[in-house]
Amino acid sequence: MRTNAMGRGWIGLLLSLCLAACAREAAPPPVRFFAEGQPADLAEWNLLRVADGRLRLNRGVMPYDLNTPLFSDYAHKLRTVWMPQGQAAAYDAERAFDFPVGTILSKTFYYPRGEGDTVLRSADDGPDLRGGGLELSKVRLVETRLLVRRREGWIALPYVWNEQQTRARLMRAGELVPLRLTGADGRSEPAQYQVPDQNQCAGCHGTDMKSKALQPIGPKARQLNRDFAYDDGLANQIARWTRAGYLRGAPAPQAAPRAANWRDPGAPLDAKARAYLDVNCGHCHSPSGPGNTSGLWLDAATREPLRLGRCKLPIAAGKGTGDRRYGLVPGKPDESILVYRMLSDDPAVMMPELGRSVVHAEGVQLIRDWIAAQQGSCG
């Protein structure tokens, strides 16, 4: 009896060792950083992989979200960050963090699926990663953009997913993806989702006109200072990045700036509107951005009412004024150029100029409410 028990024990041990070895063999290869070149297939980076019906994150690839995200034709976004072992970003209270060489930021644009070939026009509440990744039967993947920090600076790479959602290929010239957006009320509208070409990426990420170098836009302290639903529970992102070794020099979250969530019913109207304008417009309309010559600065740091458009005459808007006199007329959103341009889908008029083909109705309403609540007149 004792011999049989010992035999069974040895067999169990051997089976455990075999299973462990198989598990090790089945583990995906580590993330690969390319110091040069432009890999044709997203899979070559080993950041994300399609497995068991899900889009999964590799080891060390950390998801994150923003308090108020950029609007992109109602697309939802899965954002991730990866850095080489032992490297960390340097904290900055105002600007995007200073990321080390080897950093890879990814942003996957997707839509919840509707009936037939439609996708849902819905607010982005952050990616649902329960089960280990995005469930592909419930989403339509469109593209994954990479921002890669090389020694000479950042490079942007747009990868477009095939219809089978098995592969994403580099599309340096961009691509136009026709979609049909369906709202909760059942009404639908066409959208020509534009995957930007590499030059257009610089239109948003070239936030400093002096250097004209690409820079990240989203990963700033005020945007990351929020909780995220990680596998092991909710945790503040700044604290988690610090604990993971991805961030150095950060204060406790309560001492860091925090942007408002533009959809938070409990947040002040001014804070929500300013957060929305900052992320959608402020990277261009700032003292150092490509839109600085307009004199309209919509970044978070600007406080001067005239710079924010209040009773401000346009400099060179042309057709973009819609025969309106001022950028922002207190109490009168319909007389404000800002609202007129947000409501337009004419490429010669609309703002932002890139990243959308449909009107963000909810965003426009927020800015309308903000202007309507302001007191005073333009004389």
Rank of each mutant, 00 (worst) to 15 (best):
V142I: 15
L141T: 01
L157S: 08
Q165P: 06
R150F: 06
I155E: 10
E163Q: 14
V148A: 03
E163S: 14
L146A: 01
E152D: 15
S137Q: 14
T166N: 12
W154R: 10
E163M: 08
R145C: 05
Q164H: 12
L147Y: 02
T144F: 04
A168R: 01
Q164D: 14
E143S: 15
W154L: 08
T144D: 00
A156V: 00
L146H: 00
R149C: 14
Q165Y: 07
R167M: 12
W154H: 10
E163R: 13
G153D: 10
V160L: 12
N162E: 01
S137M: 11
R151A: 15
T166C: 04
Q164M: 13
E163G: 09
R167C: 12
V139L: 05
Y159D: 07
P158H: 09
Q164L: 14
V139G: 05
N162C: 05
R145T: 07
Q164W: 07
L141S: 02
L136I: 08
Q165T: 11
V148Q: 06
L147Q: 07
Q165S: 11
R150T: 14
P158L: 04
V139D: 10
V142T: 11
Y159L: 09
L157A: 11
V160S: 04
E135K: 06
L157N: 07
T166F: 04
R150P: 03
E163L: 10
E135S: 11
G153Y: 11
V139K: 10
T166S: 12
T166Y: 04
K138N: 12
